[in-house]
């Protein structure tokens, strides 16, 4: 076991707002790590920094020893780090299958990409396999915009898997989803984890986090204050402090751009 995703002293300010201050975090290879904290504690900003959407003012991010601090989102994804968004983001006017194919990675120049068809039969097969895995195959030719909220969550998980990432960041996978589907999502995460995939999960549903994660990190005012097993974190006085006292209520859904 070694740290696969390593965040070291990351800071980020938006104007006068310090979204992250000297935040450090490491996720072991093959583990499911949870990230919790009150609204505005910087969880989503940290995700944006890790995936290259936001450039940090200070600090480093490394994936499997490779620094990715200044990599663009497409490069981060190609290196094997996939991510879902808090509010699901799918390509609404494309079909479910086409959504999957967008995430297919190929090393080819622009001329080849213009000349070659959108997907080889192998790539389509792979996409269908993953749709099978999340149970959306029968909707493969439906427009993604017609899917329900829960189905969108599953689609987002499925197309992140297309590129076979080693680490998957999930931003509130259980948010706004009914209990049956929450269980389904949990099972998928566990199945993928048993294949060796590493997860970092932001979630407000404590039952979900505590039941799923091997380690949990608590964020407060832009830094990680406690990391430990779910049981240890639950009984840590600093955590109660963070949730009950101090810290202004802010929307931590910082726009990506």
């Amino acid at each position: 076991m070694s740290a696969h995703l390593e965040v070291e002293g990351v800071s980020k300010a938006f104007g006068g707002l310090r979204a992250l201050s000297l935040c450090s975090l490491s996720v072991e290879k093959g583990s499911i790590a949870g990230l919790i904290g009150p609204n505005g504690s910087g969880k989503t900003t940290l995700f944006n920094v890790i995936t290259g959407y936001v450039r940090p003012d200070a600090g480093t991010v490394a994936l499997g020893g490779t620094p990715i601090t200044s990599a663009r989102p497409d490069e981060v994804f190609a290196l094997g780090l996939g991510r879902t968004f808090q509010l699901t983001r799918i390509f609404a006017r494309l079909t479910v299958l086409e959504n999957m194919l967008v995430a297919t990675q190929r090393k080819e120049g622009w001329l080849r990409s213009v000349a070659r068809p959108a997907a080889s039969s192998a790539e389509q097969r792979r996409a269908i396999e993953l749709l099978d895995f999340v149970g959306l195959t029968r909707l493969a030719s439906a427009r993604a915009g017609t899917l329900s909220y829960g189905q969108r969550k599953l689609l987002e998980l499925a197309y992140v898997l297309v590129a076979d990432p080693s680490v998957i960041l999930l931003d509130e996978p259980a948010g706004g989803v009914n209990p049956t589907l929450i269980n389904e999502i949990r099972e998928r995460i566990l199945a993928l984890n048993s294949e060796g995939k590493t997860f970092l999960v932001v979630e407000h549903n404590m039952e979900f986090v505590m039941g799923l994660c091997h380690t949990v990190t608590v964020m407060h005012q832009g830094s990680a204050i406690v990391t430990g097993t779910p049981d240890a974190v639950r009984s840590d006085p600093r955590v109660l402090d963070a949730y009950l006292g101090g810290g202004e209520e802010q929307d931590d859904d910082v726009a990506v751009g």
Binding site: V76, F77, R89, I90, A163
Partner: peptide, 9 residues
């Protein structure tokens, strides 16, 4: 969704 596309490589 341009930003999502970016995040998918």
């Amino acid at each position: 969704d341009e930003d999502r596309a970016r995040g998918l490589g």
